[in-house]
């Protein structure tokens, strides 16, 4: 139970600040594509007897690189990402079915299985979370400037492509970290919903990231408690809690604007 709570809070810590950039840069679909591709990474890891984390990170990075390369080659970004996200998921599911030798609980990878988190998993989750937070904190100003306008960034001596790469790497790590906790299908929710919930309460990008992180952590802990109470699947329960927070926040924002 403590392990599960720590795993949830660690994932929230990694996902929320990065999720702010996903929202600001309108990369939600990009997050989806990367996350869905990770199931292919899971299959690969199991086939090659590698740690799931390694396979997921590698495939997520390959996916992100493929999307970046294909961008601007004739398809609208959302079409391209839709194709990539769902193809990756489909191929991943098919690939998993070929692994007849091992018994795999597919649901655990699709929706997470936080209660089976081992000590090693926990170390990977917190290690990954700290890497992502350190990376985002280190590049914060450059990332923000590049998010505002690429030419503005260039004039300040910042290479927008490099910052894009930083985000891509961070996203791949978050996806790999979050698989155990919420599963590949719900990772994007942990990225964007806390950020969107924090928006009405923030006046600067920094406060938005901090509020999003706190909300995500509360949701992770609260969702875990609720899933015990009601005997519901934990990953989806966490997302339900964060979605309820979003509803309250939107209501608050609507009332404030009207008033």
């Amino acid at each position: 139970m403590t392990r599960a709570a720590l795993a949830g809070v660690g994932t929230a810590l990694a996902a929320a600040p990065l999720g702010c950039f996903v929202v600001w840069r309108r990369m939600a679909y990009f997050g989806d594509a990367t996350a869905h591709a990770a199931i292919l990474g899971v299959a690969l890891s199991l086939a090659l007897s590698l740690p799931v984390f390694v396979g997921a990170v590698i495939i997520a990075l390959v996916m992100a690189a493929a999307v970046t390369l294909l961008t601007g080659r004739g398809y609208a970004m959302d079409t391209l990402l839709g194709v990539m996200a769902h193809s990756a998921l489909a191929f991943g599911l098919v690939a998993v079915s070929f692994l007849s030798g091992v018994r795999i609980d597919l649901m655990a990878y699709l929706f997470g299985d936080i209660l089976s988190v081992s000590r090693i998993d926990l170390a990977v989750i917190w290690g990954g979370a700290l890497v992502v937070v350190a990376l985002v904190a280190w590049r914060w100003s450059a990332l923000l400037t590049a998010t505002l306008n690429p030419d503005l960034a260039r004039a300040s001596g910042i290479a927008p492509q490099r910052e894009q790469l930083v985000l891509t790497v961070a996203l791949a790590v978050v996806v790999a970290v979050a698989i155990k906790v919420v599963g590949v299908l719900l990772i994007t929710a942990m990225l964007i919903i806390p950020a969107a919930t924090a928006r009405p309460f923030a006046r600067t990008p920094e406060t938005m990231a901090i509020i999003a992180t706190i909300l995500a952590m509360i949701a992770a802990w609260g969702g875990l408690q609720a899933s015990y109470q009601f005997d519901t699947p934990t990953g989806p329960t966490i997302v339900c809690v964060v979605a309820a927070m979003f509803a309250v926040s939107s209501l608050f924002d609507g009332v404030r604007r009207a008033g």
């Binding site: 929202v23 600001w24 840069r25 309108r26 100003s141 450059a142 923000l144 400037t145 998010t147 505002l148 306008n149 503005l152 960034a153 300040s156 910042i158 950020a195 969107a196 928006r199 923030a202 006046r203 600067t204 990008p205 920094e206 406060t207 938005m208």
Partner: peptide, 19 residues
Amino acid sequence: LVLDSTLPMTVGRFLSLPR
């Protein structure tokens, strides 16, 4: 400069970007 509506930004903060 199109500021996404999801990005809160005061003038003071904007002027401190990136340094």
